[in-house]
């Protein structure tokens, strides 16, 4: 099976966010860049599927030079080759213009099964996998927590309000991975050494048959006007009293402040 997994490099989730001088982006100095946590589930599922059914896994990312290290991590986890969409023209992309470029990679390589993380942490769009599915014209299973492959039919469970639903579609298809789908493996030393020798191909908009104004900021449908820190929450009352007194205080609060009792 020809498997493809799309990943994004994002700031470590513990990063303290500082707003840059332009007022619409974050200060990138000192940030520890990681593979977006949901993408780890996508990589694991792609590699696991290859191990079970045979085939090859190609890992793809769009991003600046530094994103190469995210690809190497995925290769160390067991992906076979990597594609890096790296060009100044890709910068400033939103979910739409990102999807536009990624859809071209799928059209070029015709994978059978494609994985995404359900969202890239940071911008938290939760959009790109589904956008690409629509642009390519194939089905998708979103925020998948359990996947079953049965010939060219796939079934995935997803969480809905108060329960779960099972969605079925035919290959080729896109699956976006949610926490719970699997336990991602840690790359071991042997994997890391092997990853250094695996092929990594660089692609520009022209390689994908796209003009510079269809990608990045130029091709975006949304644009950040500003980025602000949220208003700081003020701590209220703090008490250290006997449990019975505490219980009474909480009930008073629920009644008189929150007015929910």
């Amino acid at each position: 099976m020809n498997i493809m997994v799309f990943i994004k490099q994002v700031p470590d989730t513990e990063t303290k966010i500082k707003i840059a001088d332009d007022g619409k982006s974050i200060v990138e100095d000192g940030i520890n860049w990681i593979v977006s946590p949901y993408d780890e589930f996508a990589i694991e599922e792609a590699v696991k599927t290859k191990e079970n059914l045979g085939g090859e896994v190609t890992v793809v990312t769009m991003g600046p030079k530094r994103a190469e290290s995210a690809l190497r991590t995925a290769l160390a986890m067991g992906c076979d080759k990597a594609i890096h969409l790296e060009d100044d023209a890709f910068e400033g992309a939103d979910a739409y213009s990102t999807a536009k470029a990624l859809a071209k990679v799928i059209e070029k390589h015709n994978p059978d099964l494609i994985f995404f993380g359900k969202q890239g942490v940071g911008n938290d769009n939760t959009q790109v996998g589904q956008l690409v599915a629509e642009m390519v014209g194939i089905g998708h299973i979103g925020t998948c927590i359990k996947l079953e492959i049965d010939g060219d039919t796939i079934r995935g469970e997803r969480e809905i309000e108060g329960g779960r639903e099972t969605v079925e579609t035919k290959l080729p298809a896109i699956v976006t991975a949610q926490r719970g789908l699997n336990e991602p493996r840690y790359p071991n030393l042997r994997g890391i050494m092997k990853a250094k020798k695996k092929p990594l191909e660089k692609l520009t908009p022209a390689d994908l048959g796209l003009s510079a104004d269809e990608v990045g900021l130029a091709g975006a449908k949304t644009v950040y006007l500003s980025l602000e820190l949220p208003p700081a929450r003020q701590a209220g009352k703090k008490i250290e009293v006997e449990p019975e007194v505490a219980a009474k205080e909480i009930v008073e609060f629920l009644k008189n402040e929150a007015k929910v009792l």
Partner: peptide
Amino acid sequence: KAIATVDY
């Protein structure tokens, strides 16, 4: 940790 104002 931040709030974005977004235009279309």
